[in-house]
């Protein structure tokens, strides 16, 4: 599948990003709605469509900054740029959380 490798690398890095309040990473918390990539002159451009657990989350800007910075952490993809598309529709719900994370949060 086209861009499958780069998307996988982005997912891996998303698993390293945490809201400092919640002991589960962004990906397993179900905050990532999709990753879309396209070729552009000079490299690949990916858009991470994501949400937050709360529209008033006070660390939102720090989280979004970390998502945008993922491109600098993937060394074998020169020219990769990543932007974050923050949406609140559909709203996040606890059904988005992976089973492993549910276990960590004491939900299972």
């Amino acid at each position: 599948m086209k861009f499958a490798a780069v998307k996988e690398k982005i997912k891996e890095k998303l698993r390293d990003i945490y809201d400092p309040e919640i002991p589960v990473n962004l990906y397993d918390l179900g905050l990532i709605y999709g990753i879309d990539c396209a070729k552009e002159s000079g490299g690949t451009r990916c858009v991470v469509t994501m949400t937050l657990t709360s529209a008033t989350c006070p660390v939102s800007e720090s989280i979004l900054e970390q998502v945008r910075n993922i491109s600098s952490l993937i060394e074998d993809e020169p020219g990769l740029t990543i932007s974050a598309n923050l949406v609140f529709e559909p709203p996040w719900s606890k059904e988005n959380i992976t089973d492993e994370a549910k276990l960590h949060l004491g939900m299972l």
């Binding site: 529209a55 006070p58 939102s60 598309n85 923050l86 949406v87 609140f88």
Partner: peptide, 10 residues
């Protein structure tokens, strides 16, 4: 895209 201003924290 939804935007949130983060310049409010005292």
């Amino acid at each position: 895209m939804f935007s949130i201003s983060q310049d409010f924290a005292p």
